[in-house]
């Protein structure tokens, strides 16, 4: 546990048609350094790899703090800026409360599962 967080893979990206489906490797999206790297990887999908449709699958995530929300909003805005779209899916009930309390469920597209997420583009 005392080891330094290395530059390891934090996201798994799968292409389904023109949609980049992103799964999180970590169950907890917490630590600031970790969130920074996740953000960098997500932004790279849009800025460098030119993806315009991004589906984030939260199926593996069981804890997330407000620090991660900022990255999601920035990603949402980036995609809006290039006529793209961000969709979130498979968010655990507790984490869904995080989106509800902050009212981000009103500006982000959230679907119950990946299939519905793919159809939301």
């Amino acid at each position: 546990m005392a080891s330094q967080p290395a530059r390891r893979r934090r996201l798994e990206v799968e292409d389904i048609g023109d949609i980049a489906v992103v799964n999180f490797v970590d169950k907890k999206i917490l630590d600031e350094q970790n969130i920074q790297m996740i953000g960098d990887d997500l932004f790279r999908l849009v800025d460098e790899l030119g993806r315009r449709k991004v589906l984030l699958n939260f199926g593996n995530v069981d804890f997330m703090s407000s620090a991660a929300l900022g990255k999601l909003i920035t990603l949402h805005r980036k995609l809006q800026g290039v006529q793209g779209k961000l969709v979130l899916c498979k968010i655990a009930k507790d984490i869904l409360d995080v989106f509800r309390i902050t009212k981000l469920d009103k500006i982000l597209t959230i679907t119950p599962d990946e299939q519905a997420g793919l159809q939301a583009f």
Binding site: S65, S66, L69, I73, T102, K103, K106
Partner: peptide, 12 residues
């Protein structure tokens, strides 16, 4: 403020 990337801790 809804699209500002920070400031949600107290609310949560």
């Amino acid at each position: 403020n809804i699209e500002r990337p920070c400031g949600r801790g107290l609310l949560l």
